[in-house]
Design a protein around this nucleic acid. Structure first.
Lengths: 194, 194, 194, 194
DNA sequence: TATGAATGAGCGTTCATTCAT
DNA sequence: TATGAATGAACGCTCATTCAT
């Protein structure tokens, strides 16, 4: 039933993503326009939409890549044994989300679930996040370094909530204090044993 | 130097906002078009842009109004004496934010601080929220109904973070569970004495 | 690289120009509005700007057409054998230029050369004018009816200069004397043998 | 019947012209906007139109000033005794007209006659030009250095025609050859004895 | 799959000019 | 005279998306 993916198709898709990456690298995510992408890829506009449902489809690809890269880095870290260590360990994620307003917007919009078209790559990243944070928290809790009166998953989602809040403020506040600094007190109040 | 605002100007501004309110009341925020607003207000298009920097400027006004109305209702409530009561007391805010995706988007985007153009009306609403929640929490804490190991303001901002997270999920999740229900466990873990 | 112009594109362009011609025929060049053109052409506004850089682009087309039509009529005439005959032969051009201030303005502005976007159609018309006048003058000079101490092209451009001067005066003078009458003495002094 | 001009009025008018001159000096004639002028002059917009019939009224003032200054310089010169000397003597005018496209446009538009409101300052400048050129030509003709088979006034207007043509080309040609160089051959063919 | 012309609905803008105060 | 809010009629533009070929 399912057609074998044609090599030509893969090549075109790759050309489009490469072109997009180049443009984003030069001018930022906000400047990404389908017109430029197809021009650089040397394809017609219509072809773009044969490969991506819409522009967001491409954007989500690029952003999911970034988020997954950040998460890869975090998973390579030793599990944090304290709230402060956790805070430090969140840095790749905070840096990625803070880099461009659109990253955060898309992450918010698609984090929840998968649209009708299945996983966008962001939702599964969010799940990875929760799983990782929960593992970290459970581990620290087992060592008596964090609270264990709540399911680690709930605490993990709470960490996400505070991170999101922090990043949101980062984008509308005039003063650009370090997001991690702002996040610290919340994580302590949320995760420390009291 | 002297800048006595002329009453005529105020009247025109009011006409524009009234017209916008009527249109939104009939067709929703997403249907708001500048052309319709000026037509209904009986005012030239140029006049619109003499009063608002752009369409967002008007949108922000309308949304700030809604948020303030919700907050007014909440301030009229008796201070909640428990986390469950707090959850119930948050209903006006949650209802307002989940009513229309745009409300939430704008609230997020402008909640933080005042841009170069000064307060948009949303930032001050956010401050009112924090103040109210902090008062509630301090009150309940004084009665031993909530934790008091943290500054009430910090706890209040945490409530906002969880509320935002909840509403964000409301908009991207396929299943639309009751936001308040989702919020409950987080508030309990955040505010209850343990 | 390959850029075979699609027939559909040519058709649309023709529709736009036809629509514009109709509107101008009814209400004059000054009344030409992009909105009306696209409405009458049954085409989207965006399409207009895919075919013309701006309103001027279309205007230039229409005016170039008129000038070319005038020149066609002039080229069909028998070569004038005297300055007076030349004066009479210039009538189609003078009539076209004095018909509407915009025609003259655009003709002046674009007569010189081709902008970065290539020939506008007016520049090449100007060249045709010079070539025609030069032919006429060379012919008359060969018959001893006009001076031949100067290159015919120089004399031809001089004719243009006097014609432009005459038309310019036509538009700012309170009294609207016949342009040809005003032009006569200059052409005689410029072209006659002395 | 005629009111004595009030000193306050003169002061305001002077403030407006000064402000305009400053703006033009910084950003050029094309950037002149009534809004900026009144802002810099510290007057209300309505006041502007109490002093000038329209924006062109002010523009014409500024441009007439420039043209008169150029003419002053030319009148101070010794009468040119040859066509080449005349060409050199025209430099102040050519420089002024070539400086900004608007100068030329306004000069063309208002050179002919005076509108209903009387002389704009440009028309009388044009007359000064003709008178000066005619004097120069008559003088040279008397010395046998220029043709004298035509009224000096006619020849003077011809000089204007060629100058205008030259300047017009200057603005639309891609190559910006020296206007005076282009003008030379025409003046020789127009003025020299043959 | 690929093409690229066409769509479309509205936004933001302009800015000289008027007019009620 | 002076004020400045209001006018108004287009223009230029955007740009993701569709669809006939």
């Amino acid at each position: 039933m399912s057609n074998p993916v044609q090599p030509r198709s893969l090549k075109t898709r790759a050309k489009l993503i490469d072109a997009a990456r180049t443009i984003v690298g030069q001018s930022g995510l906000a400047a990404l326009r389908v017109e430029d992408v197809v021009a650089r890829a040397g394809v017609a506009k219509g072809t773009f939409f044969a490969h991506f449902a819409d522009k967001d489809g491409l954007l989500v690809q690029l952003i999911a890549e970034r988020l997954n890269a950040a998460l890869d880095r975090m998973e390579a870290l030793p599990p944090p044994g304290s709230v402060d260590a956790l805070l430090a360990a969140l840095d790749p994620l905070l840096t990625t989300l803070t880099d461009d307003r659109i990253v955060f917007d898309i992450a918010m919009r698609y984090s929840g679930g998968m649209g009708p078209a299945g996983d966008t790559g962001i939702a599964s990243n969010t799940e990875r996040q929760v799983a990782l944070f929960a593992r970290w928290i459970a581990n620290a809790a087992a060592q008596g370094a964090m609270r264990n009166d709540q399911p680690p998953e709930l605490l993990a989602e709470g960490v996400q909530a505070f991170a999101a809040q922090t990043v949101a403020l980062h984008f509308c506040e005039v003063t650009r204090a370090n997001p991690a600094e702002r996040l610290g007190p919340f994580l302590r109040a949320w995760l420390e044993i009291r």
